[in-house]
Design a protein around this nucleic acid. Structure first.
Lengths: 328, 328
DNA sequence: CTGAAAGCGCTTACAG
DNA sequence: CTGAAAGCGCTTACAG
C-alpha cells in the first residue's frame, strides 16, 4: 500500500535505522545521506506520523477546544495560537463545542486519546467545575474563560475592570437606566455580569439584565421583547460581539435610534462595530496576546509540570464611539 | 506512564484481544464484557488513537485546508464540514494557509504524513496547477476554489452567473462606470473577474478593476487610491466580504456616500452587510450546502476511488439592498 | 466466545 | 558511522 521506511532502506541499500537517522538529522556520512535522500525522493516516501508518535511517545500536537468557531473572538484567538504553536514546532488540532458540555466532555476524552502534548481550552461554566477529571500531568491552559483559583494555568481578561469602565462611561454620559445582556454559558459572561452589578451598585443605580445563549439570535429575541416592554432600558451593555449584534438588530426592528433612544456598548472591537453608524463603543481585548500567552504558558507547563499554577490577567482597552454619545 | 490495553487486560483477567473486542463492540460474553468494562473504568484507560490508527491502517480523519480562517465564509464552511464529518464518524483536522502557496505545499505533505482518510481543500490558484502531485488514491475534494476540468471532485459556486447577475443588476439601476475589486490569489476570484469582464462587454461597457490580496486592508488601500483619482468608478463590485468591507471603509474615508456617490455590491451575506446603512447588496452563497456536499463527495470517493470525477456547481442568491439603490 | 501470535511503521537503546 | 533487535499500543487473522 503506502511506502514505508523499509522501502526507502531497500532502495538506498541501508538499514531503516539509517533512514530514520537521515530524517531526524542524526549523524550520517554525507555519502550515505545523499543516497538515502535520493531514495526518499525516488520512492516518494512520506513518514507515517501515527507510527512516529506511537513510538516516540509524544505527539507534538496541541489541542484547542473553543466554544464557538463562529465568534470572531475565537477565530482570532485560534489564529494567534496556531501561529505561536507553529513557531514552537507544534501542530494544532481544533475542536468546536458550540457551548455544549456534552461535546466538551467528549472532546476532552478525545484529546486524551489523541495523547496531545498540550491543551488550550475555553470551557463552559458547567465544565469548569469538573476539570479535575483531567489527569494531573495533562498540560492544560484555560483561555478566555477560567474560574478563580482553579488548578490550571489560565489567560483571561480583567472582566471586572472592563465592565466597570463601561458602566462608568455610560454613567458619565448621563445614562441611568443601564441594562445588561450576558451570555449564559461562560464564566467570563458571569464575571462581566458581576462586574456590571457591582458597578451599578457603586453608582447607586438599579440593575436589570438578561442572560441568554451567547448568539446573536438569542440576544435579538430577548432584547426585542425587553425593549418593547415597560422596563426598557436607555442603555445596554452586551458581553460579547454576537450579543452586541443581536441587540443592535433588536433596536433596529423595534425602531429605536442609537444612541438617542438606546445607547449600546459591548465587547470585542470587530470591524463592523466601526462600520455601522453610529460606531459601537467597545472594550477591545488583546486577543493576539491572549493566544500567544496561552501557548507560552503551555510550553512552560510541558517543560516543567510542577511549576506553580499561573493566571495571567490582561486588560482591555475602551474604544468610545457614537453609540454612547447621545448626551454630549 | 500511560495506561495501556495490557493493564486493562491484567485487571480484568482476560487477554488484550478480548479487551479490544469489548471496545470495538465485538462478540463477547456479557459476563466478561462487564468485567472488562469495570476494569476500564477502574484503570481510567483511554485507548491510544495513534496506535489504533497505525494498526488498523486508516485514520478516520478528514483534513481541511482553507486559505483564511478569518474570512467568515470559510468559518461557516468549516462549521458545516465539521458537522457533516462528525455525523459520518470522522474527525476533522484543520489547517490555515493564509493564501500562502508554500504553506499549502507544507500542509499538503503533512496531510499525507497524517494519512488522513480524506481531504477537503480550498487552494490558491498557484497550487491548483500542481495538485497532480497528490497520489492517485488520495480522496481529495476541492471546495469553493477549483479549476475547470481538474482531476479532483469539487464543489463550487456558479461564479460566472453570480457576477453576471450583479453586473446586470447594477446596469439596470443605471450605473455605467462599474469597477471591480477581485482577490489576486484564488481561481474563484479570477472566475468572478472573468464573469464581470464578460458581463460588462455584453452590456457594451468599459471594464476597470483592481486585483489585490483578499483582505480588507489591501482593498481599502487600493480602492482608496482609485476613488481619489480621475478614473473613480460610480459603482464597485467586490469579490468577497473582506474586500467589500475594505471598499466600504475606503469610501467612508474618502467621504463618499453610499449609494449616492458610490454603489457597492459584493459576495457573502454576512450579518454586518445588513447592519450598515445602507445595507449592502450581495450574492449569498449556500455555504452550508457547500460544506455538506464536500463531505458527501469525499465519502463517496473513499468508498469508490474509481468513480468518475464530479464537479458540483451551486447557485448563489442575489439579495438587493440599499447600497445599489441610488437611482430608484 | 477467547487467546496467542504477528505485525502496523516507526524510534531507540545497544553493539560493533 | 551503521545495523540488528526490541518495542510503542493497538488490531487482525488464525486456532481452538
Amino acid at each position: 500500500m503506502s511506502i514505508s521506511i523499509n522501502d526507502v532502506a531497500d532502495a538506498a541499500g541501508v538499514s531503516k535505522s539509517t533512514v530514520s537517522r537521515v530524517i531526524a538529522g542524526g549523524s550520517v556520512s554525507s555519502e550515505v545521506r545523499a543516497r538515502v535522500e535520493a531514495a526518499i525522493r525516488q520512492t516518494g516516501y512520506r513518514p507515517n506520523l501515527q507510527a512516529r508518535r506511537l513510538r516516540s511517545r509524544h505527539t507534538g500536537i496541541v489541542g484547542v477546544i473553543v466554544a464557538d468557531i463562529r465568534n470572531p473572538f475565537f477565530t482570532a484567538l485560534i489564529g494567534a495560537v496556531e501561529e505561536a504553536a507553529y513557531r514552537a514546532g507544534l501542530r494544532v488540532t481544533l475542536c468546536n463545542t458550540d457551548e455544549d458540555p456534552e461535546r466538551e466532555a467528549l472532546y476532552l476524552q478525545l484529546m486524551q486519546e489523541e495523547r496531545v502534548s498540550g491543551l488550550i481550552f475555553a470551557p463552559t461554566r458547567t465544565t469548569i467545575g469538573c476539570l479535575d477529571g483531567l489527569p494531573q500531568d495533562f498540560p492544560a491552559v484555560l483561555v478566555d474563560r477560567a474560574g478563580a483559583g482553579g488548578r490550571h494555568d489560565a489567560v483571561v481578561l480583567d472582566n471586572a475592570a472592563a465592565t466597570t469602565t463601561l458602566v462608568s462611561h455610560l454613567v458619565e454620559r448621563g445614562y441611568r437606566r443601564i441594562g445588561g445582556v450576558f451570555g449564559s454559558t461562560s464564566n467570563t459572561a458571569s464575571e462581566r455580569r458581576d462586574g456590571y452589578l457591582a458597578a451599578m451598585q457603586a453608582h447607586g443605580l438599579a440593575a436589570d439584565y438578561r442572560e441568554v445563549a451567547p448568539q446573536a439570535e438569542a440576544a435579538e429575541d430577548a432584547v426585542g421583547q425587553w425593549l418593547r416592554g415597560p422596563t426598557a432600558p436607555e442603555a445596554i451593555l452586551a458581553s460579547n460581539s454576537l450579543l452586541t449584534m443581536g441587540t443592535l438588530r433588536a433596536a433596529r426592528s423595534v425602531g429605536l435610534r442609537i444612541p438617542d433612544d438606546l445607547a449600546l456598548a459591548g465587547f470585542d472591537n470587530e470591524r463592523w462595530t466601526e462600520l455601522v453608524a453610529p460606531g459601537i463603543t467597545v472594550i477591545e481585548q488583546p486577543v493576539e496576546d491572549m493566544g500567544r500567552a496561552a501557548v507560552a504558558l503551555m510550553l512552560d507547563r510541558m517543560r516543567a509540570p510542577d511549576l506553580a499554577v499561573r493566571r495571567l490577567v490582561l486588560s482591555g482597552r475602551c474604544i468610545v464611539r457614537g453609540s454612547t454619545d447621545a448626551r454630549t
